[in-house]
Structures are given as C-alpha cells and as structure tokens.
C-alpha cells in the first residue's frame, strides 16, 4: 500500500537491467553474482561440514557433486566469481572517484563523462574474462 502511494518501483524496478545502458546491466549482474556466490558459500559450508559425520558421509557428498549438474553449477560459480571480482575492482575504483572523468562544461548532447568508454570497456572485459574462465573451467570439469 505504502509502495503504491509512494510510486516506488521496488525490487522489480531495481532488478530491471534494461532501459539504462550497459552500466545498469553491470549493476544487475554484480548483484546477481553476489547473491549467487553467497548461495554457493552457504552450500559449500554445508558440503564441507559433512566431513564431521565421517568418511562415508564425506565420500557420499563428493559423489553427489561429481555429477554433470554439479559441474554446471561449478562452471557458473567460476563465471560469477570472475565477473564479480573484475567488475568489483572497477566499481571500487569508481567509488573513490578514479576513472569517472573530470568535471567540465557540459555540451549538447550531454553525454555523461562518468559513463565513459573506459568504464564500458572494463564491463565488457569483466564479462569476457568470466566467459573465458567458464570455458576453461568447463573443459577441465567435463574433460575426463
């Protein structure tokens, strides 16, 4: 009700990566990969904690992860980890005012200096690195 009155877009608006260029897509991917890595961390803690139940339980868990589905999940985790790290470095530097351009007289058509080609290049490089790492990871995991 309050959301309707304040006309806020809510989570749906925040999670919508369209409309505002590649920077908003990077923002969305950063959040998504962050949540994905958090889910993986929780799963990983659960997986490794099975060792306290003895060798049999641990082997059973390992067997469970050594499946094609387990490999797909691990490949995704590799991609998420690489993108989150590379894009995270770009965002952290940006947060300190590094690489966001210099203030100046705006001229029509008013292209924002902070959304410059260096930022866009870094986003594409992050995506590219993630894709390469995923391909390498998949080749190792599915290689046997």
């Amino acid at each position: 009700m309050a959301e309707r009155l304040s006309n806020r877009e809510g989570i749906k608006g925040m999670a919508n990566p369209t409309r505002y260029g590649i920077e908003r897509v990077a923002y969305w991917l950063q959040r998504l990969t962050g949540l994905g890595l958090l889910a993986y961390l929780i799963g990983h803690i659960f997986e490794t904690s099975t060792i306290v139940h003895g060798k049999v339980a641990w082997d059973k868990m390992l067997e469970f992860t050594q499946t094609p589905q387990g490999h797909i999940i691990l490949t995704l985790v590799i991609g998420m980890c690489v993108f989150h790290t590379a894009n995270g470095i770009r965002v952290m530097l940006g947060h300190g005012g590094i690489g966001v351009g210099k203030p100046g007289q705006p001229e029509y058509p008013y292209k924002a200096a902070s959304l410059n080609y260096k930022q866009r290049l870094c986003i594409w490089v992050s995506i590219g690195l993630a894709a390469l790492a995923m391909m390498y990871g998949a080749s190792v995991l599915f290689g046997d």
């Binding site: 505002y20 990077a26 923002y27 705006p106 001229e107 924002a112 200096a113």
Partner: peptide, 19 residues
C-alpha cells in the same frame, strides 16, 4: 552503487554519478 542510471537520464549533463 554506481549504476550510472542517474547520469544516463539527466537532461542537462549534470552527471550526478560522477559527482
């Protein structure tokens, strides 16, 4: 979180994301 959408829509070239 530096999504840059503010600067994307600014009609006067203020570039709030940079600020």
């Amino acid at each position: 979180h530096f999504a840059g959408s503010c600067s994307h829509v600014c009609p006067k070239g203020v570039d709030p994301a940079m600020a």
